[in-house]
Design a protein around this nucleic acid. Structure first.
Lengths: 109, 109
DNA sequence: TCTATTCATCGTAATATTGCAATGTATCAA
DNA sequence: TTGATACATTGCAATATTACGATGAATAGA
């Protein structure tokens, strides 16, 4: 099948899964970390920074943009990418709520 | 290819990707949320709780156990599952470091 | 022992993901 | 206009993921 049965889960669960899925590839993690490190729009460079071919990077950027985690502003022949800070904060809230669930101290098994 | 080139990324990036990947399916998110809600070992039940067939749930549980996020203790004919709290805390630290990167206030584009 | 129950594993079909060569599109500079 | 540059898109091959029926292994109770 290869197709997740999203209809039997609630919106929050599907949202967490969607965000997580995009972080589920080291190249996308590396791209985001680089954008954070620069903390500015970066034009080009990503292909040299990460060791993957240009179409591959372009595809990963597309997925990040689709989820709204990065912005891409066209500037002449190049495109400047940066973190979409508002959306990143929103995503963070969703993920933190999931990761930070209350755990009682005592172990059960 | 379908194969991520993990060798060109560092350990931290690959670790974040691995954890994220396991959260990248709503069924596994739902399983974890249920285990947190119960906050105890739960024997069986997960198949009824989540709306997927038994082999499918078993497969998802296997992946969660493989990453160390849950424990499975055999108890007679059934198996009791619960969150592996120590490992969850470790995972949380890794993910928080990634999600909580410092963002300057000013926008760049 | 026999049977029911619970869960894991195997095998398989359908679909998704990853990566890149080839190509397309848009802009700038000469 | 022409060529160069930067990036997106297309098409395809290799592999991964998801889901489940069928089956296997282990245990409890009759």
């Amino acid at each position: 099948m290869g197709l997740a049965k999203t209809d039997i889960f609630n919106d929050q669960q599907n949202e967490i899964a969607l965000f997580s899925k995009v972080f589920g590839h080291p190249a996308r993690v590396a791209i985001l970390q680089h954008l954070f490190k620069i903390d500015a729009c970066i034009c080009g460079d990503l292909v040299n920074e990460i060791g993957l071919a240009q179409p591959t990077i372009s595809q990963h950027l597309k997925e990040l943009k689709l989820l709204g985690l990065i912005k891409g502003n066209i500037e002449g022949t190049s495109v400047c990418y940066c973190i979409h800070k508002e959306n990143w904060t929103i995503m963070k809230k969703v993920m933190l709520k999931f990761l930070d669930q209350d755990i009682s101290k005592e172990n059960c098994c």
